[in-house]
Write a protein that binds this DNA or RNA. Sequence first.
DNA 1: GGCAGATCTGATAGCGATAACACCGCCTTC
DNA 2: GAAGGCGGTGTTATCGCTATCAGATCTGCC
Lengths: 356, 356
Amino acid sequence: MNATVRDVARKARVSAMTVSRVINGSASVRPETKRRVERAIAELDYVPNSVARGLMSSKTGTLGLIVPDIANPFFTMIVRGAETVARRAGYRLLLCNSENDLAFEREYVEEMISHRVEGLLIAPVGDKSKANLLPLIRREFPFVIIDRSIAGFDSDLVQADSVGGAKKLVSHLISIGHRRIAMITQPGDVSTGRDRSQGYREALEAAGIAIDPAIVIETPTADRDGGYRVMKQVLALDNRPTAVFAINNLTALGAIQVIREAGMVVPDDMGLACFDDVEHLAVLSPFLTVMNQPTETFGTVASMLLLDRIGGRVGDWPRRVILQADLIVRVSCGAKLQTPRHRSGPPDVHTQREAD
Amino acid sequence: MNATVRDVARKARVSAMTVSRVINGSASVRPETKRRVERAIAELDYVPNSVARGLMSSKTGTLGLIVPDIANPFFTMIVRGAETVARRAGYRLLLCNSENDLAFEREYVEEMISHRVEGLLIAPVGDKSKANLLPLIRREFPFVIIDRSIAGFDSDLVQADSVGGAKKLVSHLISIGHRRIAMITQPGDVSTGRDRSQGYREALEAAGIAIDPAIVIETPTADRDGGYRVMKQVLALDNRPTAVFAINNLTALGAIQVIREAGMVVPDDMGLACFDDVEHLAVLSPFLTVMNQPTETFGTVASMLLLDRIGGRVGDWPRRVILQADLIVRVSCGAKLQTPRHRSGPPDVHTQREAD
DNA sequence: GGCAGATCTGATAGCGATAACACCGCCTTC
DNA sequence: GAAGGCGGTGTTATCGCTATCAGATCTGCC
């Protein structure tokens, strides 16, 4: 069904090699021969088979990308960033949703090796992903880890300063009067959970506030459902906190649902702050106080690191890129904003960025 | 660097063919031989090369997916749906962002053919994409079109009932008292723009309202920026409309920005309704009246159609799946909701004001 | 015991593209 | 005029895997 170099060669009355040379411009071909070949290509509607090419050259022109969930806006932006850079470099992305499942992740890593992608971008499930990544190390397979570091594992990595960011965010909550602050966090084997919890503790300690383990609650899944469940527990506590620090935007949304269902108002009855802004949402309803991570940049930088590694343009040592997150103070935390409600000028109408 | 069947064969003291048989279980192998081979595979950390396999069998285990922009929540959900179904069937997705650019689209189609994906899912740029898709037809390449149909082009297709949906939405605006309704639309060579404009006209005609071309304004890009620009024009009109029908969620967000910057309030000063809900956003701020399309289902159904076609389980005739969109009435259109808006405690302060 | 048939295994030949080399003219160059 | 160079082209072998066929070994059965 599909024409091959040989078909083109026959039609143009040359050898397959000459056709290849015309396609790749890899050597000079007599203008008239070239024309004949080009005509044959057009007539046969010939498209080179990059699978065959990939077999010869072990260059498949593809990169693998494994994320827990593309539909999570956080990862969506990472995908977009990664895709943009990859495309410019002539690469396509093979997309995998690990669904935060270690077994899936393992399979995908193996499948990416099998597909002979030239490199792998991965936002791992957690510390236990280490075992899944060892095959990559063994093969000296180029890969870059995104967002979550893995304890005791050195590799190229792009992430945000979760400890610092959490500390800043919680310190802000403290600065506007909150003393009893709950945290919705993730199990300690996910670096973002671990780091943000640490930032939380550091902020409290710095303010001389005792840490109450009863109001630091873990959710196995950092999504809306998880936030919802944990917030239910928080509201059931005897000694209710006045504010909640949610590990990410989705858990915060779940928490808001619970708070509203309980007939309470954010921030009057309960302050709220979290990691990760939600694009678009900020336009319609500039409400959540967040630590905004440069998610798209995670993707672009990770791709760039990966391409460098594929191209052999870097040494063996792992490169860790730590990007800064921005504190965006809006109303959910209970801060009094100086700006009027309907100031003009896009994009973040009701947003005040901290000026430090 | 990577072990091959031959390496495994040598180590297990069998032929490459036998190794292949063990891997694929394609023929019976003596248990003891099998064990030797499996040990060799484990020791060499052998992973079969699916590129080579793909060359032999022309089965690459990949599908192509071309969308204008993964970061657009509408397409994100399509990607997720498509990925889920593809994965269950043992396929990976090769992701392409066409950026609504016909030239990019053309390249991507060719590249997908070159990569020998087994089928292609594509949300086309518009009617002009026809030329880009002809190579697929010529090769009888399996593909499914998503969201936007192409004038004069028959193929497998999944989309929503844009005409009916728009009619329903605009009729709703009329039913709650709006008589002068502007529309932010897309050029007529994109089916969603064409169809929704038609629904808009049908609704007006049914209500005996004359159509004023001056308040049906096109934006070349149906994104926030496009909505922003068009809404500026709308507000500059002498005879301002009382409501706006935006072709999708992003243009609606852009429109809201303009309205707010003008010191106006939705829906009191300007009603607003659009196609496409925004996940998460509805939780935080149930504000926008929308026609909600089952986006994830677009992806899953399209994948299913494609897999059927690849598997040769269907005839030649094209299948068109039209999914229903749901009208979700919230406050932005200006409808008086029966349930008190702040029944379980007010949502965030800003939407609260808009609801007054 | 011997033969048909089943079971197991190997050799060979591609899938489609291209690297490496060989070759043929023809032009320089001394 | 022989040696060398170079542009243009073809031949061969190979990437890693597997379809196909053929050979080897074993089994059951008369």
